[in-house]
């Protein structure tokens, strides 16, 4: 822990930043005619320093996973700017884009689906190395053993020649994590890495990611819909609603003092160990998450909001107001 804190004492430089990022999917009829577009990510900005974690939290269908894919370069942004490690990512050609992608680790939600079922663990871990032509065969073999040991799949011999279906869910997710770090990336995108695992292994996996982050000073973008794991895991948090960030701050600030009405509702939905929960009914915002094909006018949360300001919230889209230093919120309630 000492080494970690020392490293953190140094002002880490910005590893990744997004500015006004938009990812839109066009809808076509009969493969020809445009009939509209789904704005899955619509004007998102954030930055991340080395060794830090940002959690992006939001309900299903709010655009979290699309944001992850845009960061990974799997979806092309329609607008906005992406910077990674001091390099601008917009306008890269296919080859540059591929080498960019290999510098970001990707941990997926479904560990079984994320591993090719017809490859052994050895082959799965060698693939990124082979594709990016890193080093000789011997080095590749050594690196594979190294990462397997790092994700604590030991003894290595017991796992290296297994097919994914022979492993448990937690072991599969460890292989996925091993694959994400095999190229020695500086940034890891973890898209709901624990939501499909048994409760018993969730903490282990989170601790593993945390440990790897400390060991290699990695930036982590952690995407989840589950707020209960966030406090011990990350420094920053961004609450996403309807393809936009509703609120963005340090974890402590948001968990202790949520500002946006949506964040408040989200936090109140987190179960707490309180016997009173048996009898109380939790207040949840009425209505459905917004359609990203035809989002509501003005603030996207206004149809469900208890503090709606008529004539403003339903007309004008809110700006990001800085309520406190490092705590921005997109809500008209905090206009100055």
């Amino acid at each position: 822990m000492l080494a970690v804190s020392v490293r953190r004492g140094v002002e880490n430089k910005i590893l990744f930043s997004a500015k006004d990022l938009c990812t839109w999917f066009e809808l076509r009829r009969w493969g020809f005619f445009r009939v509209g577009s789904v704005k899955a990510v619509d004007g998102v900005s954030f930055e991340l320093r080395r060794g830090e974690t940002i959690t992006i939290v939001g309900e299903s269908g709010c655009g979290k996973s699309t944001l992850a894919k845009t960061i990974l370069g799997l979806c092309l942004p329609a607008r906005g700017e992406l910077n990674f490690d001091g390099k601008r990512l917009n306008g890269l050609n296919t080859r540059q884009m591929r080498s960019h992608r290999s510098k970001i680790g990707y941990i997926q939600q479904d560990p079984y689906g994320a591993l090719p079922p017809f490859m052994t663990v050895r082959r799965i871990l060698e693939e990124p190395l082979r594709i990016n032509k890193t080093g000789k065969k011997e080095e590749m073999k050594r690196r594979v053993r190294e990462v397997l040991a790092e994700v604590k799949l030991t003894p290595v011999e017991d796992f290296i020649d297994k097919f994914p279906h022979m492993l448990s869910g937690g072991q599969q997710q460890r292989v996925v994590i091993a694959r994400s770090i095999v190229m020695k990336p500086r940034l890891i995108v973890a898209d709901e890495p624990i939501s499909m695992l048994d409760a018993s292994v969730r903490i282990e996996i989170l601790e593993l990611i945390r440990g790897l982050q400390h060991a290699h000073n990695l930036g982590v973008i952690y995407i989840t819909h589950d707020l209960s794991t966030v406090r011990h895991f990350s420094e920053h948090i961004a609450v996403m609603y309807g393809a936009k960030f509703a609120e963005k701050a340090k974890v402590k600030d948001i968990l202790d003092n949520p500002l946006h009405p949506y964040t408040r509702a989200l936090l109140s939905a987190v179960p707490k160990l309180d016997p009173a929960n048996v009898t109380t009914f939790k207040e949840v915002p009425p209505g459905e998450p917004p359609s990203l094909l035809k989002p509501p006018s003005g603030c996207r949360f206004h149809p469900r909001c208890y503090a709606i300001i008529k004539g403003l919230c339903d007309v004008e889209s809110p700006l990001e107001f800085e309520a406190k230093k490092g705590h921005s919120v997109a809500c008209w309630l905090y206009r100055k």
Partner: peptide, 26 residues
């Protein structure tokens, strides 16, 4: 649509490799 195809894209596999090493074996 399998996640491992997406993962392969993420670590830089070419279209050709994805078709013949990832889709075809399946």
């Amino acid at each position: 649509g399998m996640p491992y195809i997406e993962a392969a894209k993420a670590y830089g596999a070419s279209n050709f490799r994805i078709i013949f090493q990832y889709m075809l074996p399946k």
